[in-house]
Design a protein around this nucleic acid. Structure first.
Ligand SMILES: [Zn+2]
Ligand SMILES: [Zn+2]
Ligand SMILES: [Zn+2]
Ligand SMILES: [Zn+2]
Lengths: 141, 141
DNA sequence: CTACAAGCTACAGTAGGTAGAGGTTCAAGC
DNA sequence: GCTTGAACCTCTACCTACTGTAGCTTGTAG
């Protein structure tokens, strides 16, 4: 049985985060020592490793909760799992698209600035006036 | 003079957001009617438009606060402004790089899944084991 | 048997807002 | 001049996904 600190080290998680996951019901309440300290088994280790890995791939805790629920019935079709992963992929792609538009505009602002005074700084000029801006953040996205 | 709702419409901001910006000192306290309602002038309109546009380009409220302070002395060099914009560009580029790694891995997971049962779902398999994953999220980034 | 690291609970704070309750004011229409 | 109701007001709580602190207790190595 592992103490919370050991579990934390093995999974690269902060101790508080583990207690937080328990609080929101993502990790089950573990057994306790007589003195009240948490003790974890290998199932907890696997579950937490799964959560952390999914977090690193950008899944929300809600999505992870669904994935964990689904993985409890091994004989079911994985269609729902794939739907969640696909949704996550779309989410990531949308964020990339948005960030690429920002990158383009930021680069342009900086390229066009003549590095003189504040009063003719191109960066501030663009920020003051979306008309001088080529990004399409006004219309959706 | 504009009521808060009019200002909100003209800048595409929620009324609560305007009050929030005032609360954190990003917008100055405006004049009030006898009954206590806020009334705004054109300077407020410009300042809020600047804030919203900078937000759309991904600047944090802290960065925006600095930009607004800098833009108050028109004769100074714009070097500091450009540093902030450059920092923001780097930030955006870092996020893009990270998201692209996630995108690649999510796509791969989905491509490799044979869409049968949960027990052999490739998506869950990869989530359970970073060894089966090609993303480099463990090491930094 | 004693230190003290590590555990415990409870609460506050982060960014950047958003939502609602419950009460007041403004302005248009009659 | 009076009524009505949309818009305003303050205050509080909530969102995600944690992180940090205070003050106290427990476990374990030497
Ligand atoms: Zn400049
Ligand atoms: Zn723009
Ligand atoms: Zn699958
Ligand atoms: Zn991985």
């Amino acid at each position: 049985m592992l103490a919370i600190g050991t579990l934390a080290k093995r999974t690269g998680t902060k101790v508080q985060t583990i207690r937080y996951y328990e609080q929101i019901g993502l990790l089950p309440e573990p057994g306790r020592t007589e003195g009240g300290q948490r003790r974890y088994g290998n199932a907890d280790l696997d579950r937490l490793a799964f959560i952390r890995h999914a977090r690193q791939l950008g899944f929300t805790l809600e999505a992870i909760r669904e994935l964990l629920n689904l993985s409890d019935n091994p004989s079911r079709s994985c269609a729902e799992v794939d739907v969640i992963a696909h949704r996550q992929l779309k989410e990531v792609e949308a964020r990339i698209a948005r960030l690429e538009a920002l990158r383009t505009e930021l680069k342009r602002m900086l390229r066009e600035c003549s590095r003189e005074t504040i009063s003719d700084c191109r960066v501030l000029e663009v920020l003051r006036d979306h008309g001088a801006c080529l990004a399409d953040h006004q219309t959706g996205a």
